[in-house]
Design a protein around this nucleic acid. Structure first.
Lengths: 195, 195
DNA sequence: TGAACTTGCAACACTGATGTTGCATGTTCT
DNA sequence: AGAACATGCAACATCAGTGTTGCAAGTTCA
């Protein structure tokens, strides 16, 4: 009996509570994915029953959290206009934007095995976007012509994931990380001379 | 009251049971980390009480599983003789060996937040081994002189992790994966010409 | 101001997982 | 063969987490 994020307009009051719960859930669950609802409520500064009023079940809460983070993820990718800016620029911009989201919503972005309709749809969209970007990169001569685009994408995701583990605090640090990710992705860590 | 792997010699009988439980735990938990002991017992073909006889608690079982996988991990690295073979050969060989272990013990290698004394010790040893190997690679002129060795190591781990997601079935497929990992690590996915 | 809504609190029911014990039946190993 | 050990089974005790309800007190908002 909770609102799946689309029912009736909430009172400003309740809206703040929902946000507080989602943010608390992110913090608590990223530290311990098996943490009980009690801890989440406590971290949000509300009673446990209030959490249950807003989210019918633990499952529903996690689904809402995933949906929320997924939206941020999507926005981060779109904000880079990856279809229209030069591919190298887009690659960098997407990386920096996504790093921001991954750092702030670590749990929600990691525990994504949510099979909700919208989340899956958004992820598919981002994946397609990513593939288009890599194709453009290859066509622009930035990737080797024989590049396995699926492997490339997975390596890219993995590098972002690894970089996000650093939890930088300033924007400049995030930019530095993005630079490092892009550099490593394109050049690896080996010496420059190709064999 | 279970045997932490070092108490009294088990009867051949019981030894097989322990192995069966560990292997079943790996299978079941890799599919669902929150799976109840019942499921593990069932998958191992034993009664739930037998699992509890061998492993005092769920925690103890997971710790034993981590210890077991960690040992395999260590063996995989050592078998490549990374201190004495040429660094490029060692890199490839370690990669292939570790891929084997990561593929067979996915859960155990992933859920390593076990703070047992021995597991931590072995991991530190492997980490040191890895750092030595990367230093040798750099000194051999295979890595750029200004390489951040910590980042290099983390990228390497991440690539192995990603590659292990493919679950190849033949040894040849594992070799192909290892080749891909090493290639991506050293050259990235960009075009050959250095800027 | 007052209707509608939100929250905290306390109490309760329910469920599923964990861990234990005793005993009868097998199995290992010497 | 026979002591020692292993296992399955059934039964039990606990416990933590989940989800519910009713009510009194506080908040929003028109």
């Amino acid at each position: 009996m909770a609102l799946p994020a689309s029912a009736k307009p909430l009172r400003s009051d309740a809206e703040r509570t929902v946000r507080a719960i989602l943010e608390a859930a992110e913090r608590v669950l990223s530290a311990n994915p098996a943490a009980p609802m009690e801890q989440i409520a406590e971290a949000a500064g509300v009673a446990r029953t209030t959490v249950h009023r807003r989210f019918a079940s633990r499952e529903a809460l996690i689904a809402a959290l995933a949906a929320w983070a997924t939206q941020r993820f999507h926005d981060a990718v779109e904000a880079a206009r990856p279809d229209t800016t030069p591919p190298a620029v887009a690659l960098y911009q997407v990386t920096a934007n996504v790093l921001h989201v991954k750092i702030g919503w670590r749990y929600a972005m990691g525990a994504l095995p949510t099979d909700s309709p919208e989340v899956a749809r958004v992820h598919a969209a981002v994946l397609a976007q990513c593939e288009r970007l890599f194709t453009r990169l290859r066509d622009a001569g930035l990737l080797r012509p024989d590049t396995d685009l699926d492997w490339a994408r997975r390596v890219y995701y993995a590098l972002i994931h690894e970089a996000a583990a650093e939890s930088p605090d300033t924007d400049a640090a995030v930019d530095a990380l993005a630079t490092r990710v892009v550099d490593t992705l394109l050049r690896g860590i080996g010496v420059l001379a190709g064999r």
